[in-house]
């Protein structure tokens, strides 16, 4: 297997009861790259994202066929521990969802759940994560105050810090800026650029300009199928397929 491939989706089908939401998806995610998943509502991009760390396990009557390989190992193998898996694959959601705890405790939470007890190590990791999430300077003087007092953009960066604290390899982002203003959005986008030095990032976004700005690779989905995947600069200057061109230029439907 190519060592630069962090994760590979192999002939993946996904069903919500009788409805097939994904059709034989074949897609590779390269290490230290940002891959954007784009497409109209209902195209399957969020479903795919949630398949990548088994978030769909919780949905009743859903089922998966095919494989998702993390460094060659199928994450759907029966002996894979989902909690451990999600330590390797962090996730950031559409709306910032900090716990009703202090800034510090939000970031420390995952470390404690994973069994870290050493207080100085926890403190060190919390600071490092907040710095990585470009939030440290703004919160260092109120680290023990409630996270709910932060602005929306700060809360989202806190959620990113929380995801980074357990040192994942992959970060999944599900429309991370859709609830944020343009300045907060810009900060998150800058952050994504920095984070890819250490992490492999997969982002779902409805904002095509955002996909163009932050990603290295763009995958276009329609009706549960992967239509086209290529370097972002190619997708946005000369996509190979008419369907892709029609979607990104707004000629759809």
């Amino acid at each position: 297997m190519d060592s630069s491939i962090k994760m590979a989706v192999n002939d993946l089908d996904f069903f919500y009861a009788d409805f097939q939401a994904l059709h034989r998806i074949l897609l590779k995610f390269t290490s230290n790259q940002v891959t954007a998943l784009i497409g109209p509502s209902g195209c399957g991009k969020s479903t795919l994202l949630r398949c990548l760390n088994r978030m769909n396990d919780l949905i009743p009557y859903s089922r998966v066929k095919g494989q998702v390989l993390l460094e060659g190992r199928n994450i759907y193998d029966p002996n894979v521990d989902v909690v451990t898996l999600r330590r390797h694959i962090g996730m950031v959601f559409q709306k910032p969802n900090p716990f009703p705890k202090s800034v510090f405790e939000n970031v420390a939470y995952g470390l404690r759940v994973n069994g870290m007890r050493d207080r100085s190590m926890i403190t060190e990791r919390v600071e490092k994560s907040l710095k990585q999430a470009a939030l440290w300077e703004e919160v260092k003087d109120r680290i023990h105050e409630s996270a709910l007092g932060l602005s929306g953009g700060q809360q989202q960066r806190l959620c990113i810090a929380r995801a980074l604290a357990v040192e994942p390899e992959i970060v999944l982002m599900d429309e991370p800026c859709s609830a944020l203003d343009p300045i907060a959005t810009q900060k998150i986008e800058e952050l994504i650029h920095q984070l890819k030095e250490k992490y492999t990032i997969v982002i779902v976004t409805h904002n095509m300009q955002q996909a163009a700005r932050v990603s290295d690779v763009t995958a276009f989905f329609y009706l549960g199928k992967l239509i086209e995947v290529d370097e972002t600069k190619k997708i946005f200057t000369r996509p190979s397929l008419k369907e892709t061109s029609d979607y990104i230029t707004g000629r759809f439907g």
Binding site: M208, Q209, A212, I235, F236, T237, R238, P239, T244, S245, I248, T249
Partner: peptide, 9 residues
């Protein structure tokens, strides 16, 4: 409009 693809070209 920040056009892309064929429109940008």
């Amino acid at each position: 409009h920040q056009p892309v693809a064929v429109d940008l070209r």
